[in-house]
Design a protein around this nucleic acid. Structure first.
Length: 829
RNA sequence: GGGCGGAUGGCGGAACUGGCAGACGCGCCGGACUUAGGAUCCGGUGGAGCGAUCCGUGAGGGUUCGAGUCCCUCUCCGCCCACCA
């Protein structure tokens, strides 16, 4: 055995051995229970970064552990290869996005292998392969048949930088999430998934996801955004009827005006002729304002009076109808009833334009509100109704119910549910995506491409400029087809799919990645789904994870899967920041990449650093010093095995039973097995699991075994240590395990060995240290048998000198005894 | 403004259902071995005090024999969302 720890001489060797043995192939244990461990697949733009290093290290530790626990594990990897960045890069340097993507994949694969990740590489695929995206097209056609896909003529977010439509969910503060260019509204025909039809179901499903972080569940709930309210019709006599949506129908007696969105269809109709010019100017002005500016936090509230009046159906009162820039056409009915006393926006608007403020809700307790004209700000809490006719005196909640019911009974409204979630517009005027499989025919209209003509392959020869028409429109051989129905010349759809489509079902494709008859094998799905553990960044909390849940429900409807949630447990990992605590970025010059670190320290050290720095969900800062420390730990472990070679041949029959350091060592060994095992089964706090291994090494280090029994105890510890280390630092663990086990085991691999078990009798200490307190303050400690009762411990404690000093001259009023932990004398006088 | 997390030594972080605060690592200090040490090994390391002891988990209150942990009020930090009616 080499005296020095040299990771570079051992890591590639074991990587090769594992690969040759097919150690990480799925399905090696067909009779064992299945487990599916999945990390979010990477988008291969450029080189692998530390964030990737973290996700895959966390998932890999789990996968390796579960394999050793005897499960049949699937741990696949692939590449999310289609997408805007590759296309933007292509626009920049003129290279084909596929060429660049394939290069990046080669680099990624090499780095992942150098990190020793236990992927089943035989299942790898990239979403840019027609063998994959043809099934995106297949799903599209199935959803089209079922009305889940539809064509809509609607306002869309138009990114002025990417020149393409992006989803609502991808707009951040009025800007494109990717390129940060301003997003403007534009009317455009587009394809959409009817995800809103699943809104209630997606919401209900969250209650069953008990192993998802609460944070993520809350974000999804907010994103789906169910609000229960009421729709109420405010007639404009002789003109029209304005439907307003409100969640606070209990405040309706305080409604002093009604506001329409500038784009509301009734604007023209209700506006009185003398105000038409002013209204039109306002509408024009608002339309020109960018979404970001209009809906930004500090944007001024502006409005204009239409001259019309609408009737509050509850009171019969006539209230003025206004337009305002802050009312959005796309939400609710695009019209709101304004209750300035109980809504802050309405309040500010009313003050600005001198509209009346009428208090109709009083706080249930505490001071009453002043009259509306003296109110300093809106009171938006629930309370007790006043000045609300027959509803006066009711609480807000029962009032909402009673009032919505009355609206329904009298036919001027109804209880209504509204969602924040919008349908998912997924067509992109881009090249590097899945072609949408439809044909536009002059005779037959929109004609789906027949299944037997799939895939519609992305042509290589597209000219990508990022401007004007979609790139595919400029490829005549692609565009010009004959109609599958009538055989006349027709045009292909030139738009492609959002890449979130690709990542919505890839986990299922891993189950039969080479299937050319169907997207995946439903029998395999029955065995492997849902995913047991899914590891990825919390930045995907809403978009990807919602689409992914939606798609799974669609696959359920298609009979391809048996359950409606795709994943049981979600682990969201924190960011790896630079050494300065800031986000790694070229701008700060604080980027640390996994590749160079593997070359410097070896994969095992890097993996250990990532796992030891903090629990998975916390952000961590890169630290060169900590990395050094972990390299030193592995070198120390290495030296330990080297120094104890004389223990390798002792047999377990000689294990020590008599009290002494080697029996203590055995206890430590078994306790460590227990702690690390629980670390995997419960909290996934790998940092404390690794700390436990360090403690074992520290205890082992100074021991000098003299007898066979001593050596057997050391050997037991060394065998266990190699196994326990294996999920975290697999290469060095494999090497050391072979050293201990010796030549007899040369054909076996540690990664295939069973996970060590612990003896429950050994993890329980027989002597415990009990803290002694007087009035809650620590005054000493005593050693006692673990089984000791109160009387025994009390006697031991009272014999302690320091304790006696604090008890002297006092009366013991009470004694609190916690077995195995403490005894507390409560004294007085 | 709303939602969700946080706040513990010089630093990263431990602490199961309230029960010895600071495990483990880094850094630092001392020692050993060395021509040398930025390698390795051993010891120390929350603060104050010579000491017995006292003070310490963002701040302030409370519950309790006992609070990092539970309750109330507040401050700061991070992330997500935001004229969503």
């Amino acid at each position: 055995m080499n005296e020095r720890y040299e990771p570079h001489s051992i890591e590639p060797r074991w990587q090769t051995r594992w690969e040759q043995a097919g150690a990480f192939k799925t399905g090696r244990r067909p009779d064992a229970e299945p487990r599916y461990v999945l990390e979010m697949f990477p988008y291969p733009s450029g080189a692998m970064h530390m964030g990737h290093g973290r996700v895959y290290t966390i998932g890999d530790a789990l996968a390796r552990y579960l394999r050793m626990r005897g499960f049949d594990v699937i741990h696949p990897i692939g590449f999310d290869a289609l997408g805007l960045p590759a296309e933007n890069a292509a626009i920049k340097d003129g290279r084909h996005p596929g060429e660049r993507t394939r290069e990046n994949i080669v680099a990624f694969r090499a780095e992942m292998k150098s990190l020793g990740y236990s992927f089943d590489w035989s299942r790898e695929f990239a979403t840019c392969e027609p063998e994959y995206y043809r099934w995106n097209q297949w799903f599209f056609l199935r959803m089209l048949e079922r009305g889940i896909v539809y064509r809509r003529e609607g306002k869309a977010n138009w990114c002025t930088g990417c020149n393409t439509v992006i989803a609502n969910e991808q707009v951040v503060d009025g800007r494109c999430e990717r390129c940060e260019s301003p997003v403007v509204e534009k009317v455009i025909p587009e394809w959409a998934f009817r995800i809103t039809a699943f809104a209630q179901d997606l919401l209900d499903g969250l209650d069953r996801l008990t192993a998802w972080p609460e944070r993520i569940l809350t974000m999804q709930r907010n994103w789906i955004g169910k609000s229960v309210g009421a729709e109420v019709a405010f007639p404009v006599p002789g003109q029209a009827s304005i439907d307003v949506f409100t969640t606070r129908v209990d405040t309706i007696f305080g409604c002093t005006y009604v506001v329409l969105a500038p784009e509301h269809p009734l604007v023209e109709k209700v506006t009185v002729p003398e105000r038409a010019a002013e209204v039109r100017a306002f509408v024009e002005r608002t339309r020109k304002t960018e979404a970001a500016e209009r809906t930004g936090e500090d944007a001024p509230k502006e409005g204009v009076f239409t001259g019309a009046h609408a009737v509050n159906p509850y009171t019969g009162e006539r209230v003025p109808v206004w337009l305002a820039n802050f009312v959005l056409a796309g939400y609710g009915t695009g019209a709101v009833m304004s209750v300035p006393a109980h809504d802050q926006r309405d309040f500010e608007f009313a003050r600005k334009y001198g509209l009346p403020v009428r208090v109709v809700i009083q706080p249930a307790k505490g001071e009453k509100l002043p009259p509306g004209d003296q109110l300093a700000k809106a009171y938006t809490e629930d309370g007790v109704l006043e000045g609300s006719g027959r509803f006066t005196g009711l609480g807000s909640a029962p009032a909402r119910e009673a009032m919505a019911d009355e609206a329904k009974a009298k036919g001027f409204g109804k209880p209504t549910v509204r969602w924040h979630l919008r349908d998912w517009g997924f067509s992109r005027q881009r090249y590097w995506g899945t072609p949408i499989p439809v044909i536009y025919c002059g005779t037959d209209g929109i004609v789906p491409v027949p299944d037997d003509q799939l895939p519609v392959v992305l042509p290589d020869e597209a000219i990508i400029t990022g401007k004007g028409e979609p790139p595919l429109a400029k490829v005549p051989s692609f565009v010009n087809v004959t109609c599958p129905k009538c055989g006349k010349p027709a045009r292909r759809e030139v738009e492609t799919m959002d890449t979130f489509v690709d990542s919505s079902w890839y986990y299922a494709r891993f189950l039969s990645p080479h299937d050319d008859k169907r997207p995946f094998d439903p029998e395999a799905a029955k065995r492997w789904l849902p995913v047991d553990v899914y590891v990825g960044g919390p930045e995907h909390a809403v978009m990807h994870l919602l689409y992914f849940r939606f798609w799974h429900r669609v696959m359920h409807q298609l009979g391809l899967v048996h359950e409606d949630e795709p994943c049981e447990r979600l682990v969201t990992q924190g960011i790896v920041n630079g050494p300065d605590g800031r986000k790694m970025s070229k701008r700060w010059g604080n980027v640390v990449q996994p590749g160079p670190m593997v070359r410097k320290y070896g994969a095992d050290t890097l993996r250990l650093f990532i796992l030891f720095a903090a629990p998975p969900e916390k952000d961590i800062d890169w630290s060169d010093d900590q990395v050094d420390g972990l390299f030193r730990f592995l070198a120390r472990v290495w030296r330990l095995y080297h120094a104890r070679q004389d223990c390798f041949r002792a047999g377990p029959e000689h294990l020590p039973g008599a009290p002494g350091p080697f029996l203590e060592l055995r206890r430590r060994t078994h306790r460590t097995v227990q702690r690390v095992t629980e670390g995997f089964d419960k909290e996934l706090k790998f940092n404390t699991s690794i700390a436990a291994l360090m403690e074992l090494v520290n205890e082992l280090y100074p021991l000098e075994p003299k007898t066979d029994a001593d050596r057997a105890a050391v050997r037991e510890a060394l065998v266990a240590l190699a196994s326990l280390l294996s999920p975290f630092a697999p290469h060095v663990a494999e090497e050391l395990w072979h050293e201990v086990i010796g030549p007899a085991a040369k054909d076996r691999l540690l990664v295939d060995e069973p996970w060590p078990t612990f003896d429950p009798a050994l993890v329980l200490a027989d002597t415990v240290t009990i803290a002694v307190q007087v009035n809650g303050k620590l005054r000493g400690e005593v050693q006692a048998p673990a089984s000791a009762g109160e009387a025994e411990v009390r006697a031991l404690a009272e014999a302690e000198e320091r304790v006696q000093a604090h008890l002297a001259g006092k009366t013991v009023r009470k004694v609190v005894f916690v077995p195995k932990r403490l005894v507390n004398f409560v004294v007085g006088g």
